[in-house]
């Protein structure tokens, strides 16, 4: 059972209180009605499913109710960072080089 830091509650709580909410920083296209079938499939279905460092969303559903983002290693299941929703994709703590990625 994971121990998850909620950036809104300011403390780590049992996974029981949380619900996983998929990969983070996948913005809903502004012009969603206009995009191609391929682009829609990419947005709605395709995920990185990263083995290693992954940016993902959680909701503290049985706590403060907030969605937030984390960086987790999907091999060790270690959390490297939790940060509030709306913030840009955060760099991996301790990583020497900034990680590429969009700020969504």
């Amino acid at each position: 059972m994971l121990l998850i830091h909620c950036p809104y509650c300011g403390e780590s709580r049992s996974e029981l209180e949380f619900r996983w909410a998929g990969e983070a920083h996948i913005a809903r296209p502004e012009n969603i009605a206009e995009i191609s079938d391929e682009a829609f499939a990419e947005y709605f279905f395709i995920r990185d499913n990263t083995k290693g460092i992954a940016w993902e969303r959680w909701r503290h559903i049985h706590g403060c109710g907030r969605f937030f983002n984390t960086i987790r290693d999907t091999v060790s299941d270690k959390f490297l960072l939790s940060y509030k929703a709306g913030l840009a994709r955060q760099p991996v703590p301790g990583a020497s080089e900034p990680v590429e990625g969009d700020a969504a």
């Binding site: 509650c9 709580r13 029981l16 209180e17 049985h62 706590g63 403060c64 109710g65």
Partner: peptide, 10 residues
């Protein structure tokens, strides 16, 4: 105070 779980309920 906190919202949390007790057994299978919130």
């Amino acid at each position: 105070c906190a919202r949390t779980l007790f057994g299978k309920i919130e």
